[in-house]
């Protein structure tokens, strides 16, 4: 790892003041530190958000608000999450392994927008709002492309609010080596149905209009079968060809719909 300068911010304003294009925010470090160890990133300064008071889970009635520094394990085991959006707890429990979940945070996951990460699919399907130190961003506008988000250089995610669905589920086909999603599908049912897909898209997480239309008109696992899911803009790599990923998208959607009960 290259040299770096570690600072622990004690407030959001303090962290913002230190942010520049040579600095990076440090949350759980479960993505950033491996990247630095491989010398794929070499920030001059790391600004640790641990003492900024950004962890916590709050029921807002029609939405669930989760602070950026809330760890995956805390979402997995939260009674508030289990009562309001249990699918989110299931998603958190499927991330990596226990040790990753003991450190990794929701803010880091959303900010990183890894094309194989789990949380972006929930944010998109549950019409989430990403609250930053300067504005609120709709999930639809937030995820811009692979590892790309609408975040400005000096912007910090404070919290994420998820709208409560009437039913929701996440189905994941994990990559057996990395445990990230080879394909993950988050289905949420409200007035209409949202189907958000991670792990598959060349531009990162996306919603599938065909599956959403079919499931909005009839919400059952059987409705998935006739829908055409093309592998044209899907990732092809040594783990899975694009047409196999397209197949997995349908299968994970079917399983998620079945899990909605």
């Amino acid at each position: 790892m290259y040299q770096t300068n570690y600072v622990r911010a004690s407030s959001i304003d303090g962290a913002v003041a230190k942010l520049d294009d040579e600095a990076k925010l440090l949350a759980g470090g479960m993505t950033l530190l491996p990247t630095m160890k491989q010398r794929l990133a070499s920030p001059e300064t790391l600004i640790d958000l641990a003492d900024c008071g950004l962890a916590g889970i709050e029921d807002l009635g029609d939405a669930l608000k989760i602070g950026a520094m809330t760890r995956h394990v805390d979402v997995e085991t939260s009674e508030i999450v289990a009562k309001s959006i249990p699918a989110l707890a299931v998603l958190a429990a499927k991330i990596g392994d226990r040790q990753v979940r003991n450190r990794g945070t929701i803010g880091g996951s959303i900010a990183n927008n890894d094309p194989s990460a789990c949380y972006p699919s929930a944010a998109l399907a549950l019409d989430a709002t990403i609250h930053t130190n300067s504005r609120d961003i709709a999930a639809d506008d937030f995820f811009v492309g692979m590892f790309e988000t609408a975040l400005e250089e000096n912007e910090i995610i404070i919290a994420i609010s998820f709208s409560k669905p009437t039913a929701a589920a996440y189905a994941k086909f994990p990559n057996p080596a990395s445990r990230y999603a080879m394909v993950g599908v988050f289905v949420a049912k409200g007035d209409s149905v949202s189907v958000a897909v991670t792990g598959a898209g060349e531009d990162g997480v996306f919603r599938h209009a065909g599956l959403e239309a079919a499931l909005t008109s009839s919400f059952s696992p059987e409705s998935v079968e006739p829908v055409t899911v093309s592998g044209d803009e899907m990732i092809s790599d040594m783990h899975a060809a694009s047409d196999y990923r397209a197949h997995l998208v349908k299968e994970m959607t079917r399983r998620a719909v079945a899990a909605c009960g």
Binding site: Y6, G29, L33, P34, K37, A50, V73, R98, Q99
Partner: peptide, 27 residues
């Protein structure tokens, strides 16, 4: 490993298991 995947480095911090290869000492 170099990739935070093997778990050979697991220790406890405040009773919770973590990968000590994926934290800075100062953290």
């Amino acid at each position: 490993c170099d990739t935070s995947q093997c778990g050979a480095c697991v220790i406890h911090i405040n009773g919770e298991s973590v990968k000590s290869c994926t934290m800075l000492a100062v953290m």
